[in-house]
Design a protein around this nucleic acid. Structure first.
Lengths: 338, 338
DNA sequence: TTGTACGCGTTATCAG
DNA sequence: CTGATAACGCGTACAA
């Protein structure tokens, strides 16, 4: 017997031990007590306890066509964004009695497809996905084939074909720029990473592009951080182009903020003396650097919660509901750096 | 039909469409091509493609008794430690063709028990657990009942009843203290959070307790950060007790480091001028503060990988192997703060 | 090379 | 109130 998984006790074992049929055990398990005598119930309770019986969820799911499992696909699990989203999803799932099957795509569209397939094979009841954005038609096909609902977390697709839950970062951008303008800044440079189709960055970029001229009355100033030129050089370019003015930096996300803080350190620059800085994304360490960075805090936890909530609605109430865009407000946290 | 999950195509549909029995389809799916004619194979391939057939993993697992799913239970998914561990596990699982079912316990022993049960119900092939440490006997019972292997990630149990993969932070502590001593520090205060049974903290605490006198020739100096007194006060106590000496702080983990950095900021203190600081845990922002914090970097990613590796060994080669303690080396990263 | 028939552990239908 | 029995979708002896 060594090397084998222990024989699990099944519903039949329980039935025999209790001297009833497995039907009755099944009823007991599912709380249909109205269909059995009190003595039966008590005996079954005792036997189940003694044998340590636990129903096999695989078999149950096979029969019932639902697994009570939600698939969650994140683009980058090591991003500070992901754990918070996952916590939101996890806490909510718990409340509704669901579990999570989690996958990480490393922002790779092909991996994303693999995991979607894999999760559908596993018969998850729905998929919450922080998508790379490159599998829109694939997901549509999967949805049509399997009926598995998708909900997009934070990142949106080109067309609104799936429920989408995201931060209202457009509004936040306006608030942040107004704040900078009111505080007396004359120029604001927007620092971005490479713009992939991934849309969150692109969206913020586009909003800045539109909002900045409206508020500051001049064309938007963009600075791109990529491998071709050191971050420090790009920062110096900004300094040169805005010299002798009260200037501030706005970053497209927390990663860029971190890269710029490093670059500023290397150049011996500090906020707010040398330049203001306002970060999109508020990560814990940002309250430490230079006496605290002004930042736009994302409602990431709530995004996770809302994804689950919407998923529950779709699963239990209306499988064919119209796709809906749910936007959650950001918070502008003003600290020492502006 | 509205409101119902799409009818999935089954192995029988494929069999009928291809004009063979489902046995042959099953063989095809499982790559046993030696048992069928080339024409059969081609026809089947075509039909599967046309129908978009995907085998139902629930049914497969029910039969085969293996799900290719590893349960992962973390104590705190929002801790910076968790995503890295998860990435290690995830990347490794991917290589071996496994998926992960993830749960977050919020360091709550009762939740931990619930999730263990739930995962066993789900028939996961094994459980990797960053345990609260309070369910040792429960896990032992579960292991005996179900045969599901457990592997402890980073946190260990009192007795070595399960495989355990962890950082060799004892050795790291010695190295760090030697470094501080060699650099000329006269006193080192060790700052800890509340010591729960959770063992990682306790272990570091105990090692410091033993190592400090050996290296510095005086009794260990401990400072406890808890709700009863402000962090700032505890820091001031340290300053008072080591006045007029070259002193350094050693923290028990990254969270404490962050709290102390905040407290130092409030008191206008800086490293390394006012005191050296060496952090257990090296988180990304630590390279930014005060020109970079000296830190002990944990091999967290590799811990995740090793957990999976060991799990594969246990599942595929030796279910009853003796529990083993696997220790991975830490790295001491010397920066500006010491 | 292919197919028949049974079992995996549950739930649901129906007849007692 | 209770219990046969047939699914659920797949894998596999065993037979042909």
């Amino acid at each position: 017997m060594a090397g084998h998984k222990k024989q699990k006790v099944t519903i039949i074992d329980v039935a025999q031990a209790a001297g009833v049929s497995k039907t009755t055990i099944s009823r007991y398990i599912n709380g249909k007590f109205e269909f059995m005598s009190d003595e039966s119930r008590e005996r079954i309770a005792k036997v189940i306890d003694e044998l340590g019986y636990r129903p096999n969820n695989l078999a149950r799911s096979l029969k019932s066509k639902e697994t009570k499992v939600i698939g969650v696909i994140v683009a980058d699990i090591t991003s500070p964004f992901s754990p918070i989203l996952l916590k939101g999803i996890s806490d909510s799932c718990e409340r509704y009695g669901y579990r999570m099957l989690i996958a990480n795509t490393d922002d790779d569209a092909s991996k994303e497809r693999d995991y979607i397939l894999s999760m559908i094979d596993e018969r998850v009841d729905g998929i919450i996905i922080n998508t790379t954005g490159e599998n829109e038609e694939f997901m549509t096909k999967m949805y049509n084939d399997s009926g598995t609902p998708f909900i997009l977390a934070d990142r949106m697709a080109r067309d609104l074909v799936f429920d989408t839950v995201r931060a209202a970062d457009g509004a936040a951008m306006y608030r942040a720029l107004h704040h900078l303008h009111d505080t007396g800044y004359e120029h604001v440079g927007f620092f971005v990473e490479k713009l992939k189709s991934s849309s969150t960055r692109v969206h913020r970029y586009e909003v800045f592009h539109k909002a900045y001229p409206e508020i500051f009355g001049e064309g938007a100033l963009f600075y791109k951080l990529d491998a071709s030129v050191p971050d420090v050089s790009e920062l110096q370019r900004f300094v040169a182009e805005t010299e002798d003015s009260k200037r501030a930096i706005m970053t497209v996300n927390g990663v860029v903020t971190m890269r710029l803080m490093k670059a500023m350190w290397q150049l011996g620059l500090h906020a707010p003396e040398d330049m203001g800085i306002c970060s999109f994304d508020d990560w814990d360490w940002m309250s430490l650097v230079d006496g605290g960075l002004t930042a736009v805090a994302q409602p990431t936890y709530r995004v996770g919660c809302e994804c689950v909530k919407r998923m529950m609605y779709r699963i239990h109430h209306n499988k064919d509901a119209m796709p809906k865009m749910i936007e959650l407000p950001c918070e502008l946290i003003i600290r020492n750096s502006t």
